[in-house]
């Protein structure tokens, strides 16, 4: 139950894009049409719901102060949290590379449709952001952490697909010249974020 509520919260209330502005660069660059936006969204959800639990395990069994206790008494004092950033990003980067190779090997058609977006995921702020928020919020167990990763991914997917849909329609409207393209996209994102703030009150 807690997991479901967390998923809903991370999709609507703590939306990665509209509440924290994470993953903005690829959000703005890839939201020109719905199909590619959907592809990237799925890839991000996939990577996010796998790297968050992996980093959760690392955080709790290796990095946190006293986390190495299972190795023996003499390790109980060790605190490796300084390295958490390095480890997290290394996990994410190697994981994206791995996913890329696996998809290329087993599903060339999916690979060619995702193509350039896969390596981009490594530097998508929402992925690292997910891991860092996980570290900050100290989730109770790995299931909750997975739920959080999955929910954040879905939230990101929802945002980018919605944005792409709006931008496809925007082609036909008469936007002031200097505002065309990037400018209006920012303002639209702002308005969508305002809309999403109305979810802030819900409790599940």
């Amino acid at each position: 139950m807690e997991a479901i509520s967390l998923i809903v919260r991370s999709i609507f209330v703590d939306n990665m894009i509209f509440a924290y502005f994470l993953g903005m660069c690829s959000f703005l660059a890839v939201s020109k049409n719905v199909k590619t936006a959907l592809g990237l969204g799925i890839a991000v959800t996939f990577v996010l719901s796998l790297t968050v639990p992996i980093n959760y395990m690392l955080e709790n069994y290796v990095l946190k102060a006293g986390a190495l206790e299972w190795l023996g008494e003499q390790f109980a004092e060790v605190d490796l949290s300084v390295f958490s950033l390095l480890i997290f990003i290394a996990v994410i980067a190697s994981f994206t590379q791995l996913v890329e190779m696996v998809i290329e090997r087993f599903s060339p058609s999916l690979y060619s449709s995702l193509g350039i977006f896969l390596p981009l995921i490594a530097v998508n702020c929402s992925i690292l952001g997910g891991s860092l928020f996980m570290q900050q919020r100290e989730f109770a167990d790995v299931g909750i952490a997975t739920a959080y990763g999955f929910g954040s991914g879905i939230g990101w997917l929802l945002a980018i697909v919605g944005m792409a849909a709006v931008r496809e329609k925007l082609e036909y409207s008469n936007v002031p010249k200097p505002l065309k393209g990037l400018g209006i996209t920012f303002i639209l994102t702002g308005l969508m974020a305002l809309g999403f703030m109305s979810f802030a009150g819900i409790n599940i």
Binding site: P178, I184, T189, G190, A193
Partner: peptide
């Protein structure tokens, strides 16, 4: 938060 986005939009508008 959304105001930051709107402000950037306005900055882009002026700049362009």
């Amino acid at each position: 938060a959304p105001m930051a986005l709107l402000l950037i939009g306005v900055i882009i508008w002026i700049h362009r």
